[in-house]
Simulated scan of single mutants.
Amino acid sequence: MKDFKSILSDLDRRQFSPIYCLVGEKETFFVDLIAEKIEQSVLSEDEKAFNQSILYGKDVTIEDVIGQAKQYPMMAEHRVIIVREAQALLKDMDSLLSYIEQPQQNTVLVFCVKHKKMDGRNSVTKLLKKKDFYFETKPLYENQVSPWISETLSASGYSIAPKASEMLVEFLGNNLSLIYKELEKLRYVVPKGTRITPELIEENIGISKDFNSFELNKAIGIKDEVKAQQIAFYFAQNPKHHPLPLTVATLNSFFNKLLRYHALKDKSQQAASRALGVSPFFVKDYSFAAQKYSMKQASQAIALIREVDMKSKGVNSNQIPHGDLLKELLVNLMR
């Protein structure tokens, strides 16, 4: 089964498959990206009027789709049929078997299946996979998102500082659609060849370069209590973008990685980066923190963080404000 990079590469070389079944149960970004690429690149603007159809699964039948797919292009090499919301047709996909066996070679037929998963035991799914017509996208793990951001910007002639990338991940998580929209905004306002810095992120997207979870982890790691409490105050004033459960999860991840760093035999930058699943740029933060927190202290920190996590959910907290819970946690972590 091809990945999205090879599919996009084939499209750039005008090597088109007669069928693309694009499936995204939890992550739909690549489904939209590939479908849009096909919509924009296969036909010229003049050819689209007679040779490109956008259908919606809830409004058509499989027979309707096959009927359109079997038509020959008019004054063009290809005909493009894109079926959006194709998940509405899944129960009738068996009717597609004979067409998959012998597709119209001049047609590019695209099914966009979103928020559903095709049954791997189904004959249609098996045949689509066998013919290499099937692409299923899966969510990226959080430690994969920063490299994806760098690759995406690099392909457009930009680069990005590791901290700037982490700021986007912290603010937007692994929602690739949202991240891509913000990257598009940056590419619109800064010239090609620019290195995206935390300052540019703050100026154009509104994410603070000084008050974020990355900076909080860093301050805790070196036991800079003043900076950590300043960030905690900022979080308390901006709970929508910095909810306590998310901050607690980030702190828990930091100290879990610190425990793993302590246990490493090879603490070189590259080895630690691979073992921890972080950019080499951030390995130094764990190296510094390891000098401030022993393995026992890191374990105790995790216990404290889990206790606050329970309190943030109303267990034994007497409705203590989340800002106060975080400030108390920071004192207990660093003293």
Rank of each mutant, 00 (worst) to 15 (best):
S6D: 11
S9W: 01
D12K: 15
D12A: 12
D12W: 09
G24S: 05
G24F: 01
K26F: 05
V31Q: 00
I34W: 00
E39Q: 09
E45M: 11
D46T: 15
E47C: 08
E47V: 15
A49F: 15
D59W: 06
D59N: 09
T61L: 06
G67C: 03
Q68L: 15
Q68S: 13
Q71P: 11
M74A: 12
A76H: 14
V80I: 10
V83C: 05
V83G: 03
Q87K: 09
S95W: 13
L97K: 08
S98T: 15
I100H: 05
E101K: 14
T107P: 02
V110Y: 02
K114D: 04
K114N: 02
K116C: 07
G120P: 13
R121S: 07
N122D: 07
T137W: 05
P139S: 05
P139E: 02
Y141P: 14
I149S: 01
I149H: 00
T152A: 11
T152M: 09
A155D: 06
S159K: 07
A161F: 11
P162F: 04
L172Y: 14
N174P: 10
N175D: 14
L178S: 15
I179P: 04
L186S: 01
P191I: 07
G193I: 02
L200I: 01
I205E: 00
L216D: 08
L216W: 04
I222N: 07
K227D: 01
Y234K: 04
F235D: 09
L246Q: 15
A249M: 12
L264C: 04
L276F: 05
L276C: 07
G277L: 08
D285Y: 14
Y286Q: 05
S287D: 14
Q291N: 12
S294F: 03
S299C: 09
I305Q: 05
M310C: 13
K313S: 06
V315C: 14
N316H: 15
H322D: 15
E328S: 10
V331H: 11
